[in-house]
């Protein structure tokens, strides 16, 4: 397959991640969306790595993205639980203290 196909899949996954973040009314969907976006980036790295001679750099970067995602989801989950505990809700539309 050509590079373009991978990039297309990646772009689509990215768009779906954004839609997921924006459209759903549960804060956990934000996490799902973020994971999708990170996966889209991983596909891009792996694809460019493959089509650019197959070195190590892209793959190493994907490993770091996976590590980052793990750390991010652990922290984010803790924050979600805390927000729920604090505000008795997991709807981002109701957790609007950024407004103040």
């Amino acid at each position: 397959m050509a590079l373009g196909a991978y990039i297309g899949v990646s772009a689509a996954l990215f768009a779906l991640g954004l839609i997921c973040i924006i459209s759903r009314r549960n804060i956990l969907y934000v996490l799902f969306g973020v994971e999708m976006i990170l996966n889209a980036a991983s596909i891009n790295f792996a694809a460019f790595n493959r089509f650019n001679g197959g070195g190590l750099e892209g793959r190493v970067f994907v490993v770091f993205i996976i590590i980052l995602a793990a750390a991010e989801s652990a922290i984010a989950l803790a924050i979600v639980l805390n927000v729920y505990h604090l505000m008795k809700t997991v709807k981002p539309s109701e957790a609007d203290f950024l407004r103040e």
Partner: peptide, 20 residues
């Protein structure tokens, strides 16, 4: 990560699943 997210699902109330 997926297991972690499922924990999140389990620890928060299930009544926020409406979708427009």
């Amino acid at each position: 990560i997926l297991a972690l997210l499922l924990f999140g699902v389990m620890l928060t109330p299930p009544d926020n699943n409406e979708r427009s």
